[in-house]
C-alpha cells in the first residue's frame, strides 16, 4: 500500500478552479517529484495535503488514514512535514527557536539534543548562526534552516515546495545534493520543482502537472525521454505546453 494516496483532488480559489481532479501516490522510501510550470497546481496540491487549503473534492490518505479536511496541526502530527515555498522561516525568532518549534510535535529532550547534533553535521552553518535571528540569514541558509526545521519533526514524509527557488546555482547544487542524501538516509520525499531537469536527475518517479491536471506520470527516465522529444521535435513552445522548463 502506498504511503500517501491522493485521489481525484479538486481545489479552487473562490470561483477559480485550481485543481481538476489530481491523483498521485508516494510509496515508502521513494523520492517523487511533482513538476510543472507556474500555476500548474503544484503548490495547491501540497497545500491541500498539508491541510492549509480545503479541497472541494477528493480524498487524501496517509498511512491508511484519511486526512482530507483535517487541520494542518493534525496532519503534521501524522508525520507529514512541509518545507514551504519561499522558505517561510520565522525571521524574528532565532535559528535555535526555529528548530525548537520544528520539533514541537516530537519533542523529547535527549532525542532533541541528538537531532541537533545531526543537523549541525548536515548544516554546519546553522551551528554558527545558532543564536542569530532567522531573518538575518542569507537565502540559502534560510533554505537549509527550513529543511532542518522540517526534519526536526522526524517526518515520515517530507515535502519540499520549490527548494531551489531564488537561490544561486551553487546553492541550488548544494540543496539537490542534500535532498539526494536525505533520500539515501531513508527519508520519503515529495519534491515540487519548476526546475524539471535538475529534479529528474535525482528522483525515481515524477508527475507532470499542467492546468490543474496530471498530464504525465512515470519514471524519471520516461519523463526525461518525453522532455527530450518535446524540446527536440516540437521546439521550446511545446515543451512549455507540456509543463516543462529546461
Amino acid at each position: 500500500m502506498p504511503m500517501l494516496t491522493v485521489e481525484n483532488l479538486m481545489a479552487s480559489y473562490g470561483v477559480v478552479r485550481a485543481l481538476h481532479g489530481i491523483s498521485l501516490e508516494v510509496n515508502e522510501g521513494e523520492l517523487v517529484a511533482l513538476l510543472g510550470v507556474n500555476g500548474a497546481g503544484k503548490s495547491t496540491t501540497l497545500k491541500s495535503i498539508t491541510g492549509v487549503l480545503r479541497p472541494v473534492k477528493g480524498t487524501i490518505t496517509f498511512l491508511g488514514k484519511e486526512i482530507t479536511n483535517r487541520t494542518p496541526e493534525f496532519i503534521v502530527k501524522q508525520g507529514i512535514s512541509l518545507v514551504p515555498e519561499g522558505r517561510d522561516i520565522f525571521g524574528q525568532l532565532t535559528v535555535e527557536e526555529n528548530l525548537r518549534l520544528g520539533a514541537f510535535v516530537s519533542y523529547e529532550r535527549d532525542r532533541y539534543k541528538a537531532d541537533l547534533k545531526e543537523i549541525f553535521e548536515l548544516f554546519p552553518i546553522l551551528e554558527e548562526r545558532f543564536t542569530q535571528a532567522g531573518g538575518l540569514l542569507s537565502g540559502g541558509e534560510q533554505q537549509m534552516l527550513a529543511i532542518a526545521r522540517a526534519m526536526m519533526a522526524h517526518p515520515k514524509l517530507l515535502m519540499l515546495d520549490e527548494p531551489s527557488l531564488g537561490l544561486s546555482p551553487t546553492m541550488t547544487d548544494q540543496i539537490f545534493v542534500l535532498i539526494k542524501r536525505l533520500r539515501e538516509m531513508g527519508s520519503t520525499i515529495l519534491l515540487v520543482e519548476q526546475n524539471a531537469e535538475r529534479a529528474l536527475e535525482i528522483v525515481e518517479r515524477a508527475y507532470l502537472l499542467g492546468n490543474g491536471e496530471v498530464e504525465f506520470a512515470g519514471t524519471a527516465e520516461d519523463l526525461k525521454h518525453k522532455v527530450d522529444i518535446a524540446s527536440v521535435y516540437f521546439g521550446g513552445d511545446d515543451a512549455q505546453k507540456a509543463g516543462v522548463t529546461l
Binding site: 520565522f90 525568532l93 527557536e97 525548537r100 518549534l101
Partner: peptide, 18 residues
C-alpha cells in the same frame, strides 16, 4: 516561541504542528 511565531506567520506556525 509558538506565540511569537504565530504573530509573525500564523499558517507556518500551524505547519510546525502548533
Amino acid at each position: 516561541m509558538a506565540m511569537r511565531a504565530a504573530a509573525e506567520k500564523f499558517t507556518t506556525t500551524r505547519l510546525m504542528g502548533v
